Computed example of a mutant assay.
Amino acid sequence: MGLYSIVYVSTATVPFWDEEVAELLEKSRSKNDGLGLTGMLLFKGGQFMQVLEGPESAVRSLIATISKDPRHEDVRTLWEEPIEQRQFPAWTMGYRGLTDQAIQAIPGYSDFFDATPGASSVWATESRSRWLLDWFRTNRA
């Protein structure tokens, strides 16, 4: 099997403060390193978007685990596809918390994460997620 990429969105069922996000990232990075996975996590106001890339079996297995995690609901795949190369090759799990200040620095960002919990079908579309991930990949500040 070759490389594969999946992008999903979900809504947190429990509060995620900076400490919880840091703990989640630490565990994810360690696990992803062992599985040969890379990617990026975006989080704002209880809404997650994540891209995972790596061996197809590992990506699919992790998505299945995430879908069963009680800390998430409304887990929805936006897009998935075989890839020839990784978009986030150096990141076992890149992360950007989306503050209002950070959002204002993103041209054309608009309201990607501005939705009520459980309403990700409204704001999360494939084209918007592709654009946003590409912006973060090329503007790593």
Rank of each mutant, 00 (worst) to 15 (best):
T11Y: 13
F112D: 11
A64E: 15
S121I: 12
R76Q: 12
L24M: 10
W91R: 03
G34A: 12
A90S: 08
H72M: 01
S61K: 11
Y95Q: 00
Y8M: 01
R76C: 09
S67L: 06
D111T: 13
E81T: 15
K68I: 01
A64P: 02
L78N: 05
D114H: 14
G46R: 04
T99A: 03
V75W: 12
L25G: 00
V75I: 13
L41W: 11
S120K: 08
F88A: 00
I63R: 07
Y109Q: 02
D111E: 13
A115K: 03
T13S: 10
A12R: 07
F48Q: 00
G46P: 04
L42T: 10
G45A: 10
G54C: 04
L52V: 09
I66E: 08
M40L: 14
Q47A: 11
F48G: 00
A115R: 11
W17M: 02
A64T: 14
R71A: 12
F48N: 00
A119I: 00
R76F: 06
A58F: 07
G39K: 06
D100L: 07
A22P: 01
S110G: 02
L42F: 15
N32M: 01
T65P: 00
Q50G: 04
Q85D: 10
V21H: 01
V14C: 00
S121H: 15
E19F: 14
Q50K: 01
W91K: 03
K68H: 12
L98Y: 01
T99P: 04
N32L: 06
S110N: 15
L52M: 10
D74G: 05
I103E: 15
T92G: 00
S57P: 03
Q50T: 05
A12K: 07
Q104G: 02
D33L: 11
Q101I: 02
K27Y: 13
E73W: 08
K27R: 07
W79G: 00
I103Q: 15
R76Y: 13
E56F: 09
R86G: 04
M93D: 15
T99C: 02
L35P: 04
A58W: 07
G94T: 02
L41N: 03
E80W: 08
K27N: 08
V14K: 08
L78V: 03
S67K: 11
V21D: 00
Q47S: 09
I66D: 05
A119G: 04
Q101E: 15
